[in-house]
Design a protein around this nucleic acid. Structure first.
Lengths: 82, 82, 82, 82
DNA sequence: TAGGGCTACTTCCATC
DNA sequence: GATGGAAGTAGCCCTA
């Protein structure tokens, strides 16, 4: 059927635009929450780290712990530990 | 009131987590739309460029046109124009 | 031979540090050149675009031209041209 | 003096190109060192973390330690501590 | 081809 | 208000 491609084109575009708009709204909401937390005395970087950590899979957690442990090892081997 | 800070803390965290979850869903949806467009023969990079262009403010558009025109000028000055 | 690993460790670290230092110097030099060009009235974004374009392989150039042509096509199909 | 701008233009371009080329070489060298370290059994992520840490200023170190300590505090407050 | 690392760009924030 | 620096984001490339 003719006009199909054009219809598809406009449809794809408006669908993405709408989704991006909603996503932008959520990003703004997230910023707002962090701003509110900050104004309540919380450390935003630490909050973000905590949330990242909560979202870790078991595998990611293992990998992180391995890196941390190797880092400590290397720091001690090179005499850089505090 | 005691426990206030802790309550706030948990509240901030879960609010952000929920928003991030929704945002992740939208990002996935956007990916899906592009994948669908691609499977319909569309050029995804060109679609993204089009959507970026539609979202431009007048000022951004002016700046882009200026860059494009300066680029052409420099290309011609340096003998790199096709 | 004992101490090998530690020696290697320190060696790797200092080699990377030295290379990163040099690389940082070059990045600063590049910034300086752009700043100088800007102060001579050149459009830095356009300069960067030109340099990127000069570095393109034939394949990359083809891909860019294809995107530009598809973008124009989509713009015209959706009535967004000009 | 005529031709000045064009001469400047070509000069800026070739200077940047040369610097970028050198910088690319250094990036490749750095990759090589990490590859060699990896083949000697080292944890590349941990090495990178160590090098980043060595490069910290006192102020950056303070900020990092503060984040880590707040993170621990929040983890314990929210019952997420291991 | 899906994921992760690297780079460049953009945006936001703090500082002056 | 401008300038620099840090964080977030997107695109690119390469590996697994």
């Amino acid at each position: 059927m003719a006009g199909n491609a054009e219809a598809h084109l406009s449809s794809f575009i408006s669908r993405v635009e709408r989704l991006e708009e909603e996503r932008k709204g959520l990003s703004d909401d997230i910023k707002d929450v962090y701003a509110e937390a900050k104004s309540n005395g919380f450390n935003v970087k630490a909050l973000k780290a905590l949330i990242r950590r909560k979202a870790e899979t078991a595998q990611q957690r293992e990998a992180r712990l391995q890196v941390e442990s190797d880092l400590d090892l290397y720091l001690s081997k090179t005499g850089l530990l505090d």
